[in-house]
Every structure is written in C-alpha cells, then in structure tokens.
Design a protein around this nucleic acid. Structure first.
Lengths: 347, 347
DNA sequence: GTCGTATAGAAAAACGTTTTTGCAAAACCG
DNA sequence: CGGTTTTGCAAAAACGTTTTTCTATACGAC
C-alpha cells in the first residue's frame, strides 16, 4: 500500500500538501493540485483509515449490540440502522449479545477503546448492568427497546402500552370475556410494559385477569408460543381469545390451537405483536400490533449521530407509535383476493 | 481517555514497560507488573484499538458485503459469520449492497484503506466487476454464493445443481409431466446454476422444457413470485407442478395459486428452494431444497480467517451440500400433530 | 577480577495521517 | 515604494501504540 509520503515524493511536494489537496484544506495551487491528484491516481493511493482515525479521534464507525440478527423484527431494525449509517458515511459493527448482559458489557467495554464513535444498544434487560456502565462512559450511546428510570440514557422505544391496551380493548369489544395473554419474559422492557398495560386495560373494563391460568411467559420463540398456548388452552379457564406479545410466538400459538382442534378465529381469536413481514401470510392472516422496527432503528441512529456530532438532542426519549392491524385471525372478514400488498424485501 | 503514558507515569515506569506488561512481551519483574496493573485499574486504562491497529497493521475486523440483511436466508448467513468472527475475536462490519455492483465496488475500494483485515462478499452478480477488483487487491476476500471462472477467488457456494435436479426428478417421479419453473434473475449465480440443472434434469427425463410458457424469472421477492405464478398458470401449458427458486417467492406463488382457486398439492405441487425458517409453517408446509445458510456463513468466515492468518487453504472452493425436504406442498401425507421441531431462534 | 548472560527496564523510532507553525513570494493598498 | 495581506508550500509535532535497540544490574563461571 502506498503511503502519503510516496504520493508526495512522486508529485514532488511535501506530505502535508497531499493531505491539503485531498481534504480541501489550506492553500494549494491548481497546478500542484493536479500533479498531486495524478500521483494519487497513478499509485492507487488511499489514505489509511486507521492513521486517519488515530489523528482525528474518530473512526466513522458505530457499533450495534443486539440480541439476535436473524429475528425478523431485529433484522428490520438493523436494516433501518444500516441505511442511516451508510447514508451518513458511517459503517456499522454488528455484535450479537444473545440477551446476555455479560456479553453486552464485554462489548460496551471493548468499544471504549476508540474503535467506534458511538453505540446503539438494543433491547437490554430491565435492570441491565449495562445502564450503569453506559452512563459512566463518555461514549455516545442510545438504547432501543429499553429504558432505565435511574440513568437518563437517550432511548427509542415503541408505545407498548398503547399497543397492548388497544389489542385488549379490541378483543373485549368483539365480545370476548376470557382473554389469555402469552407474554415475553418480564426481564424484557417491552414485555413488562405490555404486562402492565394488559392488566390495566382489563381492570378498567372490569374483567378479571387470572395470572395463574390466563397468563404464561414464553421467550419469544415459536416453540415457546406453542407450549404456552397448549398450557393456557388446557387449563380450567379456557379463553376465547389470545393476545400474544410477539408474532413468532403467535405463530407457535396458532399451530397449537390448530393441533388442539380449535378454529381460528371462530373458536379462539388471536392477536399478535410486531407485525413481522410474515404475519400477513399466516393462516389465517394474523391480527397484530404493528411496530415500526425499521423506523425505530433509523431514528435511533439519527439520534446517535447527533450525539456524535455534538448536536443537542431535540428529544432525549422517543416513543414510536404503534397501530393495531386487523386481519383474519381475530374476526371473519371478506376473503381478500389478489395480491395483498408487496414487499420491498427479497428473500 | 487515559493513554499508556498516563499509566506509565502513575506506575513510575516507561510506556514500553506498560506495553510489555499488558502484552506479556519482554522482561518485566513481578513487582513492576503489579504496580503497572494497579495503575491500569486505577485509571480504567484501555489501549486504543486505533493506535494499536496502526502499529500492528491489523484491526481484527472483517467486512461483510451482502445484498440485504432482513432476508431470512441472508440473516442466517450473517449469524453464522458473526458467530465465527466473535469466537475468534474479530468484529464484523456490515454493508448492504442491494445487489448493486457499484455499491459493492465502493465498499471494496473503501476497505482497502486498512480498516479491515478481510472481506466476505456475498452473492455478487455473475460477471460482477467486483471479481476483477478482488483479484487485483491484496486484501483477503472470500466470496459466498458466487464464483468467477476467470479469477480464482476463494468461494463457498451451495450445490445448486444437485438441489435443482433433485427437485425436478422428485416432481417427475410423482408423475408430473408439465413442471413450471420460477427462477431468480439469471444475473445471480445460484439462479444460473439452477437453470442449467433444471434444463438438464428435464432433458435427461425426456420431458420438454418450454422456456416460453413454463419459465419465468422473478427477483426473489414474494410479490414477484405471486406475479410469476399467475403468469405461468394462466398460460396455455398450465403445469401441474411448480419449482420455485426461493422460498419467499414460493410463498407468493402459493398465494397466487390459492387466489386462482388451485389446491396445493392436489391441483399443483410446489417445491421451493432455501428452506427458510418459515417454510415449514406455510399452508401447506413447503417442500423445499434446504441450503445450510448458517454453515455457508461460518465456513466462509473460517476460510477468510485462515487467509488472514496466512495459513494455506485446504480447499479453495467449497460446495455445501443441500437436501430436498419433503412436506405437504408437494404430496398429501399424514397430518403431523404436535410440535414440529423447535427453533433455536427467537423472535 | 573479568567475562558472558540472564534479567529489568528505558530511549527512541516507527506506523500514516493531520495540523500547527513558519517562511517565502506574490498580490494588494495607501 | 513600504507595509500588510493573501497565497503556496514545507517542516515538524502530534495522535497512542509497539518494537527494536540500548543500558544497567545481578549472577555465575572461569
């Protein structure tokens, strides 16, 4: 690899002149500039990002610490993050935490070594030790899908309370009196918010919530949704509707319902959360609370970039809107014919 | 951020002694070591990855240039790559190419600046200008899902020919005489191989292949699969089976078949390619050629790391095995009850 | 006692940039 | 024409490490 010195030698100038030419800083005469640029082309010179980073104190890289990559919701979020980063000339370093606070902490510490300009921490656990670490460090960090009451870390979350209570109100309005709730683990911020909102909504409607027989926690996987639905449906308070805090779990739950001989939505209505790309192609198509994963990612990245640039944030905590999308898993409707929407994504 | 000099000052030694202590190089007395380590702890010192990278000439980072992130197959591949990288103390830089050779080229050039130690280039087009660029550069690169006859770039691909011919033979064996083929774009390596294999398999069986009425190219999206199926099914040679080169497209194709009033598999059998996580939950579950996306990623990464370490590759071109997985979309079988397999993944 | 030889640590060069400072020459202004 | 400002470029310091080279002490062996 040629260095700036090689270019300088070939062009018959000093290294700083090459730097000035390439960066448009300082004074450099037109003829000199052309000589330098010719030398650059001839040698195929490219400034070392590392040396540059060392000198400038920034690397134009951001890190993303996220539980998993291949989950539809997180995939879309990553895409939102990547898009904004790339458009702003930043590169994205991807780290899988597997929801393990230890791994999160390892990465968080690792990245204090100047290799990134900022970090997006996705879906840390409630009371995750990361929060303490984050507010102790000077590196810009924004959290998505999590908040910590004590430390005031910038964050982007979705309106879990609205989504959950809307889902419950909708099911009650359809006439359901016994609603089962399959939630994610309460260590997850979203799950905790949805849990509160579901209880609230039911209480306000005067419907009792039996935490023993109508509530099960899964771990967001399809199989956990399957098991949870089996458990609830074979309990003494067999519900006529199921609210599931995650579409993949809802997929498993629907499978369980079918295997148990229940018809959806006739015997049991199902409402999910997320609106992953596949939800509309479930059989029947899944009614679910849409959360804008892509936008969560892109907004968080914009916040982080502001932080990096030293600009003040207009709002330190963003709550993204959600929306109940009604499809066939909750009520019988006219069979939609033809293509139902298209997808930007390939597969 | 404290530097090595601060630590040295506090410990009363020279910077090099701190370096030697931390890296286990050179001689350093036990008492000195302890003083240094104490100083490191007290200051919360962490060596700058950038300065280190500059001096050592490596960064422990690899870049991945990949068409999309949120596609199930690519997501899994990314996970395989990340896993191996993380286990070997490498970080992964993620770049979305959108299958645009220009963007690929931009990244490829960008990364010659020393910020990464190697590159994985996923799914470049056939005759992608990248190949020339790659073989011109000295940076280790391995290509997945692509090969270039001219340049001898290390690669990992799946056995598209075997998969496609097996799928076709299977459908013929079921008694189908007119088989439609919905392929990806021929600019994609995999599609091209599958195209050849399908033609071969049909020719060998003495079944004519009507490229006009039984062959359509989509772009891997669900909607393109939908449109392609509609086109083929409304042509003059209405087939009784459809082989679709991509599960997401197959999903769209199945939707089209249903909308047109065909029963699957009774009227039309469908076989896909990929075996994405959701394929087994399609309605009916999709018969498809399983390709080991995760392993493709992990093997490619291992190859790249070998290259980076300067170790010779045992095999420069890997062809990963594929396997036809028979489910309900191709033939009626006993209805499987209970949980059908579990998933490692959440979501 | 002098000579190797481990041991322990310091000094300084190097990695490839950017940036400050410095110094001419040219241009401008009265 | 003298002085100021602008223009054009070079020298050198700096970023924070690692590594080579060097010095110094202690320890045996001869």
């Amino acid at each position: 690899m040629p260095t700036i010195r090689d270019v300088a030698r070939l062009a018959g100038v000093a290294p700083c002149t090459v730097s000035n030419t390439l960066n448009g800083t300082g004074y450099v005469a037109k003829t000199t500039r052309e000589r330098v640029l010719a030398a650059v082309r001839e040698l195929g010179y490219q400034p070392s990002a590392i040396a540059r980073g060392l000198k400038l104190g920034r690397t134009n890289m951001i890190a993303l610490i996220i539980p998993t990559i291949s989950t539809p919701m997180f995939s879309e979020m990553i895409e939102g993050i990547e898009e904004v980063a790339a458009a702003t000339n930043y590169n994205l370093i991807l780290c899988r935490s597997a929801r393990d606070p230890k791994r999160e902490l390892t990465y968080l510490n690792l990245f204090r070594d100047g290799r990134v300009d900022g970090i997006i921490l996705a879906a840390p656990k409630v009371d995750d030790p990361c929060f303490a670490e984050v507010s102790a460090t000077t590196l810009p960090v924004v959290v998505v899908g999590g908040e910590s009451p004590g430390q005031d870390v910038p964050s982007v979350v979705v309106d879990n309370r609205k989504g959950a209570s809307e889902a419950i109100r909708y099911l009650l309005q359809l006439g359901h009196q016994r609603v089962g709730f399959i939630n994610g683990p309460l260590t997850v911020f979203d799950s905790r918010e949805r849990f509160e909102a579901v209880k609230d909504a039911l209480r306000k409607a005067g419907v009792p919530f039996d935490e023993h027989h109508l509530y099960v926690e899964g771990d967001f996987t399809r199989s956990s949704g399957y098991a949870a639905a089996r458990e609830i449906m074979s309990g003494p308070l067999r519900p006529t509707a199921l609210f599931v805090g995650g579409d993949t779990m809802a997929m498993g739950a629907m499978q369980a319902l079918k295997d148990l001989g229940f018809r959806i939505p006739d015997d049991v209505a199902v409402v999910g959360f997320d609106d992953i790309k596949y939800a509309q192609y479930f059989e029947p198509p899944l009614t679910t609370v849409r959360q804008p994963a892509y936008q969560v990612g892109s907004r968080a990245t914009k916040m982080l970039l502001s932080l990096i640039e030293g600009k003040p944030l207009r709002r330190k905590h963003l709550v993204m809107d959600v929306k109940l999308v009604i499809r066939g898993s909750s009520e019988r409707r006219r069979q939609p014919g033809g293509a139902r929407g298209t997808s930007r994504h390939e597969g």
